[in-house]
Design a protein around this nucleic acid. Sequence first.
DNA 1: GATATAATTAGATACATATCTAAATATTAT
DNA 2: ATAATATTTAGATATGTATCTAATTATATC
Lengths: 199, 199
Amino acid sequence: MQLDKIVNYHKALSDPTRLRILLLLSKGEEIHGQALAERLNLSQPTVTHHAAKLREAAMITERRDKNTVYFRLNPEFIRAGSEASLSFIFSKGTQELEEQSPENSLKESVLRNFFAKDGRLRQIPAQYKKKLIALQYMAEKLTPGTVYSEKEMNEFIKQYHDDYATIRREFIMHQFMYREHDKYELNPPEMWTRWENVK
Amino acid sequence: MQLDKIVNYHKALSDPTRLRILLLLSKGEEIHGQALAERLNLSQPTVTHHAAKLREAAMITERRDKNTVYFRLNPEFIRAGSEASLSFIFSKGTQELEEQSPENSLKESVLRNFFAKDGRLRQIPAQYKKKLIALQYMAEKLTPGTVYSEKEMNEFIKQYHDDYATIRREFIMHQFMYREHDKYELNPPEMWTRWENVK
DNA sequence: GATATAATTAGATACATATCTAAATATTAT
DNA sequence: ATAATATTTAGATATGTATCTAATTATATC
């Protein structure tokens, strides 16, 4: 197994200084060692240290001209770089970095505001999108492949909210679950109505 | 800047134990804490430790049933997971893991066998694909945006091989460089003839 | 050859973290 | 209540690593 390769790849990207180096190089221009040290406010040996790690991970290439070593993003790395988390590196040009995706901040705020500390749902969100977030959160706590009786469903839901009838119906309506002869079963996530796609 | 978010994401994936956990969960089934500890040959507190990190990075979800906590891949993580390095997790089903991509092993072997320790090219590879690998390696050492005279090109190439005329011609022929009025300039990598696409 | 410049290596320090054992907590069963 | 089971927390240890200063190496210039 090549686990080590994957580990090293992510290790290379799990340091803020190295990400800042990639960010500086992402404009496409070369930068030499001392310039990097100045712009990062670090000593030259520290730059050498990080450059070695980035080179081992094949993320940059180096070119020597007289006494000076110039660094550049490895074209291979750019070509292969379809990683979501690295979009800021590969997006040449003018797009801005979003502070935080509005999607995730909405999800976090719903989970924070509609669920109490003990885990119970304070109230069923009225707004469609937020309701789906709450439903999905609860659906993820069910066991896939398990067939639930109506009574078991009610018990499960009651740990979150007393109005089990409404929530049970919502689970069916938005394809989180499938019902047949009063038996309930979780649908695969691909079938769920995704709040990310709403409105 | 949300550098920290990216750092934490990659930190979560830069540990072999955590990758093994994700691999075990990648079959889609739930696994509880003790079972994980046994299958990984680790103590239960160690599993708790890693589970916390994976949960913070939103890669797994947990569900409690009686005394037992069951872990599962977070459906969100699966949906977002288009990362090349994580394909082994998201490829449900039967595809095998390749030990190492034959592409990269070919590249490595060319660089190892055709270039001497001092960096010089022993001989120009006769096989088309291997020749492209060697040409690309040298092209990456040129400065993009710089206009080279023919004399400068010869000097540059001679540090690798004495037959600068042949290599200079190959650079043009395979679109690594562009020539006008005996001035040479590096093309953008998108234009290069890629050995990966050959044969 | 002597000097200057940039990079690297060596060695030290401080901080982070993966792992363990032992103790504490949470939940269920008797 | 008490006992049983699974997890979590606390604390200890060992390893890894980001950073620095000082010394060394590599290359070019005088």
